[in-house]
Amino acid sequence: DVEEQIRRLEEVLKKNQPVTWNGTTYTDPNEIKKVIEELRKSM
């Protein structure tokens, strides 16, 4: 579920933690925001 994935990513973003997405680890909050944007567009 895309909305659930977005929620999880936003939680990680709030905690300022790195997130691994599709085999890539993002540590930059701006990169994580881009991933969230892409997910929103795909909905």
Rank of each mutant, 00 (worst) to 15 (best):
L39H: 01
G23E: 05
E38W: 12
D28S: 06
T24I: 15
L39A: 02
S42G: 12
E31H: 03
V19D: 02
M43V: 12
E37A: 11
D1T: 13
G23F: 02
R8W: 15
T24D: 08
V12Q: 15
W21R: 00
N22Q: 13
R7P: 01
K34C: 09
R40C: 03
V2R: 05
K34F: 10
L13P: 00
S42K: 11
I32T: 02
T20F: 14
E4S: 07
G23A: 02
W21C: 04
V19Q: 02
R7A: 11
T27N: 12
V12H: 15
E3Y: 12
V12C: 13
M43G: 07
T20M: 12
T27H: 10
K14R: 14
N16F: 14
K14I: 13
K34Q: 11
P18W: 07
T20E: 15
Q17M: 15
L39T: 01
D28M: 03
L9F: 08
K41H: 14
L9S: 00
E38R: 06
E4D: 11
R7G: 05
I36N: 00
K15Q: 13
Y26H: 03
K41V: 12
Y26F: 09
P18I: 10
E3V: 10
T24L: 13
P18R: 03
N30G: 12
R7H: 10
L9P: 00
V2S: 04
V2D: 03
K41Y: 10
W21F: 13
D1M: 12
D28Y: 03
Q5C: 06
K34M: 11
L13V: 08
K41N: 14
I36D: 00
V35D: 01
I6S: 01
Q17N: 06
G23M: 02
L13G: 02
M43L: 15
R8G: 09
I36G: 00
W21E: 02
W21N: 02
E31K: 04
E38M: 12
S42M: 14
E37Q: 10
N22R: 05
L13T: 03
V2N: 04
K33L: 14
D1F: 11
E10P: 00
Y26R: 00
N30H: 12
I32V: 10
W21D: 02
V35R: 03
D28K: 04
G23W: 01
I6A: 02
T27R: 04
P18G: 12
R7K: 09
Q5G: 05
T27P: 02
M43D: 05
T25A: 05
E10Y: 05
Q5T: 14
T24F: 12
P29G: 06
N22E: 12
T20L: 13
V2Q: 07
D28C: 04
K14M: 14
N16T: 04
V19S: 03
V19M: 10
E38L: 10
K33T: 08
K14S: 14
L13F: 07
P18F: 07
T24G: 04
G23I: 01
S42I: 14
T27W: 10
N30A: 14
S42Q: 15
T25D: 06
D1Q: 10
T27F: 10
I6W: 03
Q17S: 08
Y26S: 01
D1V: 10
V12Y: 15
T20A: 07
E4T: 05
R40W: 08
V35Q: 03
E37H: 07
L9C: 01
Y26N: 01
N22F: 10
M43H: 09
R7Q: 10
N30F: 12
E10G: 03
K34T: 08
P29M: 14
E10T: 07
V2W: 11
P29T: 08
K34P: 01
E3T: 07
I36Y: 02
E3I: 12
N22W: 06
E37F: 05
K33I: 13
T24C: 04
E37G: 04
L39G: 00
M43R: 02
R7D: 05
I36R: 00
T27V: 09
R8Y: 15
K15T: 15
V19G: 06
K14Y: 12
N16C: 05
G23T: 02
K41F: 10
E4H: 06
I36Q: 01
E31D: 13
N30M: 13
E3M: 14
N22Y: 08
E4K: 06
E11A: 10
D28P: 01
E37I: 05
M43W: 06
Q17F: 15
T25N: 06
R8V: 15
M43I: 15
K15P: 02
T25F: 14
N30Q: 13
K33P: 01
K34A: 14
E38K: 06
E4Y: 08
V19A: 10
L39Q: 01
R8I: 15
R8L: 14
V12R: 13
K15L: 15
E37W: 05
K14P: 02
E37K: 05
D1R: 05
Q17A: 11
D1P: 08
K34I: 06
E31P: 02
L13Q: 03
P18E: 12
E4I: 06
Q5I: 15
E10A: 03
S42T: 14
R40Y: 13
E37R: 05
G23P: 01
K14F: 11
N16Y: 05
S42P: 06
N16E: 09
N16V: 04
Y26M: 14
I6F: 02
T25M: 11
I32Y: 01
K14W: 08
E31N: 04
V19H: 05
E3K: 10
K41Q: 14
Q5D: 13
D1L: 12
L39I: 06
V12I: 14
K33Y: 11
P29Q: 08
P18A: 13
Y26W: 04
T25P: 03
K14H: 13
G23R: 00
K33D: 04
T25L: 15
N30E: 15
T25H: 09
T20I: 15
T20Q: 11
V2A: 08
R8T: 13
P18L: 07
R40H: 05
N16H: 11
D1H: 12
I6M: 03
N30T: 12
N22A: 08
R7N: 08
L9E: 00
T24N: 10
E38N: 09
V35F: 09
